[in-house]
Design a protein around this nucleic acid. Structure first.
Lengths: 336, 336
DNA sequence: TACTATCCCGAAAACGTTTGAATACTCAAC
DNA sequence: GTTGAGTATTCAAACGTTTTCGGGATAGTA
């Protein structure tokens, strides 16, 4: 059974479709009797306006596109949950895309979003995109007049609303947490080498070193790629070095180094400490519980959604804004 | 700058829009010269066809709706990832909705989906919906001619494609795992009391008891609601009972009982064992590592997406199908 | 009677695309 | 010089809404 349209209703009452359309939105132009009859009939028969036709006519869709690099990463699922919450509250639907850290998939995705399907998009760039430095697919959306707000993994050269976490400070604080205890080397293992947030955290790390007068040494930072074996890299790292701690730039690798260290019978935190990023349930429940920097993912999502929808609805100020949300070091058992 | 349309291209070449439309899809009707000129021009200027207009005309949207109760639950994010993967591979976009376990939000959601926006929907019912037993919002979608496949939390009275996990067997196997070691009571803590999967697991549990000749006792099953304090309930449970183990029907509560037991200095697994559901990273990394029943969430998502898209594309057989995916008990340190 | 005001409603265009049918033109064959 | 067959392009309707404009009817006023 094909869905009922206004035409069907019009036929049933022997009136025109414009009458039906107006009646359904309770227009004063239609007499009360007819109006209520039509409304009742529509309700009765579960009439649903065709949203495509409506959107085509109105040139706005009430949906926003969200593209994140990886939903399995708890930080992003928190962000997503935040976005969904305020989108729903403000009457928007979400079409969601996972770029899977792939540049190609990201441009493909932006293509489908940039075709009238959404009123705005929220995006966190794929790692590959950031390394490549190619952003025309993003620019095109903006130039098409579709508002876009970038979150977390942003690109400064693009002018748009942004919400980022204070990654410099996060890197700094984590490093300082170690350095305040002892002036001994701290390592940095990074699965996001080359991304904007990875760089900022690295700089924060360097700044902390500098402040206590320790020279930065390249051997302390361990970039880990998709196919690298973390254990091998850690072995290299631990050989002949008197580390007091390791900072891992994402939750999973933090948990894994924790486990590797435990397997090696290293004493945590006395002998060596570990700090992770993203305050997920993993960090809380692992043993020893992980000291971690919390990024407030849900709040980031909420903020981004509000900014975007404000702009869509013309409630934003003219100039673009970049909001920085502070991180927060949650000290637990994996550090002194 | 408003987006470029076929009309603009037509004006530029001094031809009609139908010529442009046909040229863009490489129709033999249009002369080679004109055809290529138009295509080049369109590429050049980043022409993107308005997808709403296209969909309105073609009566199909190339998108599917996904509604899950809770994205923060790792099982569902796995399912989601699976759906996204095959949807993308088969050229579909997905609009995602989170029902948040709320009946009202679910019906609202189905309303917007059931308005021509999607070609099909994949849904896992909210807990509240299952308890209420009200499914007209689902039926309406089906009656509107939109294919729908249910996953995990399904309703038998609705005829449609389904993919479920063998929850009866899962409950049975988990229970049996304990009972094979000793004929001592096993408790069941359930955060999903009243849901279809909760009931099935409970029945599996009962069956296992029966097989070894132990009578079922209601006090062994602990329903835990949203606002309940798990620790209090566990205290009640542990008082005056000689349990050999606890089965928790979701990952989070399993981890939490693990922690509560550790706080109480109970020896795990010697004194008391714990089995959880959903094989997430939490279960693997917690200490002691959790014995858990793995539900293969990603595979479920992939299967559901394939079934749905097959049906959308008319590749499915006439009769509806319900696919059952087996679970798998991953034995780790939290049980003997 | 004529003029205006009010109330209900319909006609039609518009959103951007697709597509079957129709037209125009060219060239060849009878 | 009529017919026929291609080829290249245009026309027009359609998808389901929304909205502007205008018109007919009735009632009220002068």
């Amino acid at each position: 059974m094909p869905k009922m349209t206004q035409k069907d209703i019009a036929a049933h009452f022997g009136v025109s479709v414009s009458t039906v359309s107006k009646a359904l939105k309770d227009s004063y132009e239609i007499g009360a009797e007819m109006r209520h009859a039509i409304q009742a009939y529509a309700r009765e028969h579960h009439y649903q306006p065709n949203i495509l036709a409506k959107n085509l006519r109105n040139k706005q869709t009430g949906t926003i596109g969200v593209v994140v690099p990886n939903i399995l990463n708890y930080f992003f699922t928190q962000v997503f949950a935040g976005i969904e919450k305020v989108a729903d509250a403000r009457g928007f639907s979400i079409v969601s895309c996972i770029s899977d850290e792939s540049y190609d998939k990201e441009v493909k995705t932006m293509g489908v979003l940039n075709s009238g399907m959404v009123d705005g998009v929220i995006i966190s760039l794929a790692k590959e995109t950031q390394q490549k430095g190619a952003f025309t697919h993003i620019q095109e959306v903006l130039e098409g007049g579709t508002p876009l707000t970038m979150i977390d993994r942003v690109e400064n050269s693009i002018v748009c609303d942004k919400v980022i976490v204070d990654d410099f400070r996060a890197g700094y604080t984590a490093t300082k947490h170690f350095l305040d205890k002892a002036k001994k080397p701290v390592a940095l293992v990074s699965t996001i080498q080359g991304s904007s947030v990875g760089n900022l955290r690295l700089q924060g790390y360097k700044r902390a070193l500098k402040e206590v007068g320790m020279p930065f040494e390249a051997k302390w930072v361990v970039p880990v790629g998709k196919d690298d074996d973390l254990e091998i890299l850690l072995n290299l790292l631990l050989a002949n070095q008197d580390l007091q701690g390791i900072i891992c730039l994402d939750e999973i690798s933090a948990i894994e180094t924790l486990h590797i260290l435990k397997r090696k019978k290293r004493n945590i935190p006395e002998e060596i400490g570990v700090i992770g990023f993203t305050d997920g349930r993993l960090s809380k429940y692992v043993s020893p519980a992980l000291t971690t920097v919390s990024q407030h993912g849900k709040y980031i999502g909420e903020t981004a959604a509000h900014m975007l929808i404000d702009r869509i609805q013309g409630k934003a100020r003219e100039t673009y804004e970049t909001r920085m949300v502070e991180t927060h070091l949650v000290v637990r058992e994996s550090t002194l």
